[in-house]
């Protein structure tokens, strides 16, 4: 096992979560603002999540060829659900009194969204990002099957050579990575919630 593989794995995870947020946040906002489109957006992100990760990566590979871009596209699609859903829920669950006050005082739709609704929804959105990140750490294991590298290759190698130590070292590293991400982001989340509820 080399540091290179760990970094490669991290690179895949972080880049895909970044893109996933960049796509999922606007989609969640869109679902919140546009009532007719809401069902379609939420349903589509759910359907993506039900496709087995390996199959999804395989399909993307058929379209885009093997390599890192394929892994990242697959991971992005797979991480969309928690981010889109949490963004939508975070916005939708804001106390209606706050929304009414904002509207009644003459804040435009976008002003309300950026000055009040998104800041209030952000802790919830961040929870979505955390879930997406932890999931991506695990799913990125399949990257190796579509030529993306990462820690999955160690496990794969271990399985092929029936080397328990190799499998274990890969798995433990992955678990440690997931735990660190989860705990670290949970800490940030707690801080945000404290500020929000003050």
């Amino acid at each position: 096992m080399t540091m290179k593989l760990v970094l490669e794995h991290l690179y895949l995870v972080l880049l895909s979560v970044l893109f996933s947020t960049a796509v999922g946040l606007p989609l969640g906002i869109f679902a919140y603002l546009n009532r007719p489109a809401r069902k379609v957006v939420l349903w589509a992100s759910e359907v993506l999540q039900t496709i087995p990760a390996l199959a999804l990566l395989g399909m993307v590979m058929v379209l885009f060829g093997a390599g890192k871009p394929t892994v990242i596209i697959g991971l992005v699609l797979y991480s969309l659900l928690p981010i889109v859903h949490n963004t939508f829920l975070g916005l939708d669950n804001i106390n209606p009194g706050i929304k009414e006050a904002a509207r009644g005082m003459g804040l435009s739709k976008w002003d309300r969204l950026f000055s009040i609704e998104l800041p209030l929804a952000f802790p919830m959105v961040f929870t979505g990002i955390r879930i997406a990140t932890v999931t991506a750490v695990g799913v990125a294991v399949f990257a190796t099957s579509v030529g993306g590298g990462g820690l999955g290759s160690i496990i794969n190698q271990g399985i092929r050579t029936q080397n328990m130590r190799l499998i274990f070292s890969g798995t433990l590293t992955l678990m440690a990575m997931a735990v660190v991400f989860d705990a670290g982001m949970a800490l940030i989340e707690k801080r945000m919630n404290r500020r929000a509820t003050h």
Binding site: N95, A101, T197
Partner: peptide, 29 residues
Amino acid sequence: VKLRRSIGYVIQQIGLFPNMTVAQNIGVV
């Protein structure tokens, strides 16, 4: 939007913006 900025509005649920300080809330309009 213009009309509402020229009419004060107070509701039962109060609806202060929790992400803003008291002073920021008063200064919204």
